[in-house]
Design a binder for these strands. Structure first.
Lengths: 335, 335
DNA sequence: TTGTATGCGTTATCAA
DNA sequence: TTGATAACGCATACAA
């Protein structure tokens, strides 16, 4: 590991002042064409690259942002991360990745650590912080993008991005109804999840527009995993044996639901149709192939990064930003 | 976004010099107990937190590392990332995430960007750089952990971490043989992949210890996806219809292989046994449940971070570090 | 136990 | 078109 040349080394070699080199490096005017070229060559030759840390200290922007997720090992967040990082890369930003492990203390300390690093913005996914703490935590940063988290009065420096879960649920119900199903159950996922709540809203709205009644016994909360879907479906089928369709919280839950149906002697989709959410790679691999709602999470990540840039570059004044991303139904075999 | 207090603000409020505050903040000796406590209270009250950027400029360490992966959306890398970030978090480090999109130029520019950020170390996964360029690129950093990349003469500042693919392949072959299989084919994955090469070595070694001959017609390269496994299996079954076992490059390839077997009228595992690699969540979900090699990738990520710490803290001198991680066979239904 | 001076590598400001 | 100087916020070395 050899020592890096500094701007002073280049200036000395070129026989000019620091500022002249600085101007060349930053493509700023005020340097004669010949000196500019000479310095350019020297920079190339010596392998000089500006030290971002020193630069950040004076310009007060670090060209880096933080991405806080519950767990990068969940494909849902990994895809968002991929999109965010792509957009960041294209605009010269770097991304700090922090996992909260679904732990509030760790989320707080992640945010603290980002604050100390003087980053320009934060993309915060599925925050578990209570509203008031969230607002306080978030106000410290120049710009924040909140993904999948409702917030009542967002400060001016935050953008919110949400998947339109309600629309997704309505699309699913519509598809069931169009296929002649009328006893549609919901394996609803965790009661505490805001996206679960939005799907319940959409589910009820979908039933309403199809002139179907909402039956609370047709709704069962569950963990967002295969086991949860299995257990929820067993419960639903016990309470309402004539269920002919199940809308599941996500693909894993849907897979659990399909297995529970099959284990109870029902055929999918003949007896019971199942729709999942997320369109994970799994969906195309299991048999029957899963009909599911697809959301372009990579785009969501991109949009989050772009929202941060927008906030950073606008004259502080305009109101808070809110984006929604619409899912679309991918029809395969299960419904 | 209110302005952060600096160390000078605290010093002024406390009526002491900057250094006294600095000493308190960094838990260094040389401050009386009462002043220390007074300053502690003030720090708390004013919400002072040291600016890591400024600190990094003088201490020459940024407490951050870079994690370079082909694509964080691949669960393989996401798991490594999770482990690395966990270990980093525990030791006070932050992690820059960079995707190369399997693109050499982007890998180079990712590394360049990290270099400008003066990070303390890099975890580089599955680098595509040619050996000579890799060495040059890597020598700029204080410490580097190379995951799944062989390198001939690793510089003293790099640790290498590899999955013991050869062992994995031998375990798979052993299991096949123990189950009475004797015509074992290999859906080998991409020919260019070093881990594919290591698995071929293990495959051949496994055959040898079972006194089975290696038949080049029983080996077929393929893309590392379901389609690749499907196509490779079709080819293998055409050339050698009596194949009774297939070792697949990864779980996706294995799933493709199973489908090709079934579509050709063969039962799994009765007629043909299949073993995959990676133990992705998929493996437990498909039917028949997939027998596969499990590697604790989260640990691998952890170890990479720990290797970097080791290199950073040792008196530069000792030789390069090399770690290997052994997979274990998870026996389910497909073999 | 406390404080002063200096410098990390860079850019902003103002003067030449 | 160029350059000298002063920051940015902090820690290191040394002095009191």
């Amino acid at each position: 590991m050899k020592k890096r040349p500094t701007i002073a080394d280049v200036a000395r070699a070129a026989g000019v002042s620091l500022m002249t080199v600085s101007r060349v490096v930053n493509d700023k005017p005020g340097v004669g064409e010949e000196t500019r070229q000479r310095i350019r060559d020297l920079v190339e030759e010596m392998g000089y690259r500006p030290n971002e840390i020193a630069r950040g200290l004076v310009t007060r922007q670090t060209l880096s942002i933080g991405l806080v997720v519950p767990d990068i090992a969940y494909p849902f967040f990994a895809q968002i991360a991929r999109g965010a990082e792509d957009a960041a890369f294209e605009t010269g930003y770097s991304v700090f990745l922090l996992n909260t492990a679904e732990n509030i203390e760790r989320e707080i300390s992640a945010l603290d650590s980002l604050h100390q690093k003087e980053i320009d913005g934060v993309i915060l996914c599925s925050s578990r912080l209570p509203s008031d703490e969230l607002v306080v935590a978030v106000e410290r940063f120049p710009a924040v993008a909140l993904i999948n988290r409702e917030i009542v009065a967002p400060p001016a420096n935050v953008a919110t991005l949400n998947v339109n879960d309600s629309l997704g649920a309505r699309l699913a119900i519509q598809h069931f109804v169009a296929g002649g199903r009328a006893r549609i159950a919901l394996a609803a996922g965790p009661a505490a999840s805001t996206s679960a709540q939005r799907r319940i809203d959409g589910y009820r709205a979908g039933l309403r527009s199809a002139h179907l009644d909402f039956d609370p016994e047709m709704l069962e909360f569950c963990t967002p995993y295969m086991e949860g879907g299995y257990a929820a479906t067993e419960a639903l089928l016990t309470r309402r044996p004539r269920v002919d369709a199940i809308f599941a919280f996500n693909d894993l839950v849907a897979i659990g639901a399909i297995q529970a149906c099959q284990d109870s002697g029902r055929r999918v989709p003949d007896d019971i149709a199942v729709i999942g959410v997320d369109d994970t790679p799994l969906a195309a691999m299991i048999r029957p192939r899963l009909t599911t709602l697809h959301t372009d999470l990579t785009s969501l990540g991109r949009q989050a990064m772009e929202a941060i840039l927008t906030i950073l570059n606008r004259d502080s004044g305009s109101g808070p930003l809110a984006y929604q991303l619409d899912p679309r139904l991918v029809v395969r075999e299960s419904a």
